[in-house]
Structure formats: C-alpha cells, structure tokens
Write a protein that binds this DNA or RNA. Structure first.
Length: 278
DNA sequence: CGGCTTTGACCAGCGC
DNA sequence: GCGCTGGTCAAAGCCG
C-alpha cells in the first residue's frame, strides 16, 4: 500500500462522517420543504372547496330565479318574527376575505399589521383548533363595521390566518402599512403583504406568507421588514395584477404538484442507492 | 387618565 | 328542551 493510500484509508471515517452530515442536512431540508408543501396543499384544497361551494351557490341562485322569489319573501317575514337580543349589526360583505400571514415561529401573538388599527374584543378557544382565536374590531372610525378573526394555522403555527368580515367605512390608511405607532405595546407584528383583492375574487387570493418561503426564507424576512411605503404599494399593484389572472392560480397549483413529484423521484433515487432514511 | 388587552360570563344558533 | 359551540360583552387590570 502506498503512503497516500494509507492516509486516505486513515481519513475514511472522517470523510464518511462529513458525507453523512451533509446528507442529514439535505434530508432535514427536504422534510421542511415537505411540511411547507403540505400546508400549501391544505390551503389550495380549502380554496378549491370554497370555489365549489361558490359554484353551487350560483347554480342554486339560478334555480331560485327560475322558481321566483316566493321563498325569499317567506324568509323575510320569519326574520321579522324573531324576538332576539338586539345586537349592533351592520351590513357585511357576503364572503369573508382570508389572508395568511407568516410570523416568527417563536412569536405567539395574534397581531397582524395590515395597515388598519384594530381593537381586540375577545378571544376564544375553538373546538377544532388548539390555538385560540382572537376577535378584532376596527377602531379607526367610531362606527366602522369591519371585523377580523385571527387564528394560527393547525399545521404550521408560524402562520396566522386572518378572516375579515365587513368593510371599512373610512379611507385606507396607506401610511400605516408600516408598523404603526399605535400598535399595542411590545407586540411583534407579523410581516404582511398588503392586498387589494376584490371580494369577488375570494378564494383566489394568494398566501403571501407561503410563496417562496423555503427557497428564499431569509431574503423575504429581511426584505419585508425593510419595505417602505412605496415598495409596499408597488407590491400591492403587482400582486393584484397576478391575482386577476386566473391562469396564475393554476400555474401555482401545477408548480406545487411538480415539486411533490420531484421530491418523490429524489426519494426513490435515495432508496435505490440504499441511503439511510430517518 | 385614556386606550388597550385579558378573560369569564352571557347570548344566539344549531344539531340531536 | 338541552347541550354544545362560536361570537360578543363588559369589568378589571395594565401601560404609556
């Protein structure tokens, strides 16, 4: 055996250890990506369900039009009969807008900086969620009917799901797209990409928090924090144009599906090579 | 002191 | 009618 050969043989365990470490790191990364895709799939699936129900609703409405408005008249009479506790009810939008916001994993607050000033009026632990749901009311105008519910995603607790009800009765506060000074003391707010998604596009809104999360996590965190007003508005315009394109949603779904296929291929390859699986 | 959050109590709707 | 659940109220306490 040559001298070089002996040295190589002597260093073999170290080389193997390094390789194992590299492979472990890669495996870990793939696992994380897998989790992200799971969440995205869940979101897409829920949106698909919403679209289906919306379609069903449209079909039902068409049927109702054919039959006439008789049933609606009966319904309104029934409403008048109710002798229930008078709640301050304002006319709200037909469908709530849902927004997904990524927060720091260690941040357990339910506060999202979306440019408006919200006052928390309740918190509840719901049946199907381990994390509590917080209820907020817009406090920018005395009689603003806008409300929102904020809850953490079941599968990824770093993601906040905000459901908006009602429309604001005042102007959009562009200035406060940055974290506002009126923000509750000491609370860290979630990074937020403003949207101007029309309500009729509900179900097609994009999960800003999720898109490109794994591939560009660090960049997006830093970038979002450093966004100034102008870039936020630009982003808003850009996102709006994307959302208006129905092909974009399809392309996104295809991309997710492709990623899953690629991952499966990689896994099969690893198995063929007899690589250890955790 | 005003504005906010917290939290237990209360209420309405719904299913059984 | 009853129990469960989600949504809201309101008193108490905290903080700048």
């Amino acid at each position: 055996m040559t001298r070089e050969g002996f040295i190589q043989l002597f260093n073999l365990p170290t080389i193997m250890d390094e390789k194992v470490e590299t492979l472990r790191a890669e495996l870990q990364q793939v696992k994380q990506e897998n989790n992200t895709i799971k969440v995205m799939l869940e979101v897409l699936s829920s949106k698909c369900t919403k679209l289906e129900s919306h379609l069903q609703e449209i079909l039902n409405n068409k049927k109702a039009e054919v039959k006439g408005i008789r049933s609606n008249q009966i319904g309104s009479v029934l409403n008048l009969d109710t002798n229930k506790r008078a709640r301050l009810e304002f006319p709200t939008a037909k469908k709530p807008l849902q927004i997904f916001v990524r927060t720091h994993p260690k941040d357990d607050s339910l506060i999202i900086n979306d440019g408006y000033q919200w006052r928390k009026y309740g918190q509840k632990v719901t049946k199907d969620h381990a994390s509590p749901r917080a209820y907020f009311r817009c406090s920018m105008a005395p009689i603003c009917p806008a409300k929102k519910k904020v809850q953490r995603c079941i599968h990824d607790k770093s993601i906040l799901v905000a459901t908006y009800d009602g429309e604001h009765s005042h102007d959009v506060p562009h200035e406060s797209l940055k974290p506002s000074s009126s923000t509750p003391k000491g609370s860290s707010e979630a990074n937020y990409f403003p949207t101007s998604i029309p309500r009729d596009k509900e179900g097609m809104n994009i999960d800003f928090a999720l898109s490109g999360w794994e591939t560009n996590r660090r960049t997006s965190e830093d970038a979002m924090q450093n966004h100034d007003n102008r870039s936020n508005i630009k982003a808003e315009e850009y996102v709006s144009s994307l959302i208006k394109d129905p092909d974009f949603t399809m392309a996104l779904a295809e991309a997710v599906a492709r990623t899953i296929t690629d991952q499966k291929k990689q896994k099969d390859l690893n198995l063929n090579l007899d690589l250890p699986e955790e």
